[in-house]
Design a protein around this nucleic acid. Sequence first.
DNA 1: CGGCCATTTGAACCATTTCAATAAACGTGG
DNA 2: CCACGTTTATTGAAATGGTTCAAATGGCCG
Lengths: 235, 235
Amino acid sequence: MNSAPPHARSGALRRLEAIAALDDLSITALNRAIDEASVLSARRELMIEGQEIVGKRLIVSGWAARARLLADGRRQLISFLIPGDLIGNCGHKRPLAVSTVLALTAVSSADLTHCQTHALKEAYEVSRAIEEAHLLAQITRLGRLSALERLADLFLELYERLALAGLAADGRFALPLTQEIVADALGLTSVHLSRTLQLARRRGEFEWRDGRVVLHDIAQLERMVGRQPVRVSML
Amino acid sequence: MNSAPPHARSGALRRLEAIAALDDLSITALNRAIDEASVLSARRELMIEGQEIVGKRLIVSGWAARARLLADGRRQLISFLIPGDLIGNCGHKRPLAVSTVLALTAVSSADLTHCQTHALKEAYEVSRAIEEAHLLAQITRLGRLSALERLADLFLELYERLALAGLAADGRFALPLTQEIVADALGLTSVHLSRTLQLARRRGEFEWRDGRVVLHDIAQLERMVGRQPVRVSML
DNA sequence: CGGCCATTTGAACCATTTCAATAAACGTGG
DNA sequence: CCACGTTTATTGAAATGGTTCAAATGGCCG
């Protein structure tokens, strides 16, 4: 029991349904695209900075990240990509990638070239706005929050996003990444991230162990970092 | 002599012409909008986080910033807005502002509601892509660069952007902001920004005094921070 | 069992912050 | 045009948060 049926409604589809009203035609098109998703293993690149963007893709499962690599080996992860997130979601002609997209786990992604219904175009636009809001959140984290606050704020954001795709509930979610990866996103060293994690655990605020995050009191954490849920539209 | 003619080609117009090929119709429409630009004095808000976005506006002159305010008084400036930049440039229905936009000097801005030619729509899309690239640059600055590198990188970005609008040349541009404002953008204290500025001056790399920035060797600065110019399209 | 990678720990070090005091520049009204 | 209060920039000294480097520990996979 509890084994997923072969065509379980994917988290990616759930997220898109949550951010825009999709008609049957759109859902059919999406399901067809998702059925033909291709898999890329961890550490492979889905897109490379400076290269031309071929088309929109949808993350169907797994974790990826947008990254900027510096000449001297430092790297900054811009944002995490989870099921339901889009890659190459641009609006102009012959776009160039401004960041590299890196698979952090095995990632399956679907080509959205043939998913261009009216409803889906609206979903893409909303997704873009949400993504922008997350970039602003990342800037604020890096610029003005302490290590503990950064981590709490990131976990709250991931929780909110994963919940949209049905991949988080009850203050818990799977986070199949290394500390070093999260450190690269938060502008910290992995050493300090490790210590910060222990601090959070000792304080009883949240923990991350064995690939699972538990947030003990979401409302209180939100207060602590002054966080409010992301909203990009009146609707 | 040297007094600007009443209808000098504005920096804002110059930037839009630089990022997309504009036909006469578009330019006429823009000029009409710019002629009717309205002025807001420093410290006033052009847009408030969480409120509905009314329509696109174009910064015609002056400096503004997108900002996030934290509950405890900390604030993070997300990005600077200069002539030719857009506000409220969204693609979906009933959008909400995800950041406050604050006038840093007196700012004049034009309503673009009636500027919807094909060429202008393309310009808006390209502008959006450029803005996103700048957000990524800001994330990298805050996450992985030292104070001196952050400052150099920001000045290089501003130089590049101002040059597009014809407002910078020869490694020099006007920067009519306080140190505290720039510190809030760079995630530093104004005290440390002041010290960093002195370091840069002593090293002969760049200086900012009396509202004017001078970059002494752009190519060398770019090497120092590992910076490459922003490109978002093959065209 | 052995090797590899991720995590933890400790100690020294450094970049940046904090707080407080001073100096300079600015605008405003008399 | 000067005197005023206010904002902005600078300086110093001490405290802090985060980094660095190196070594130890623990899991996991072959």
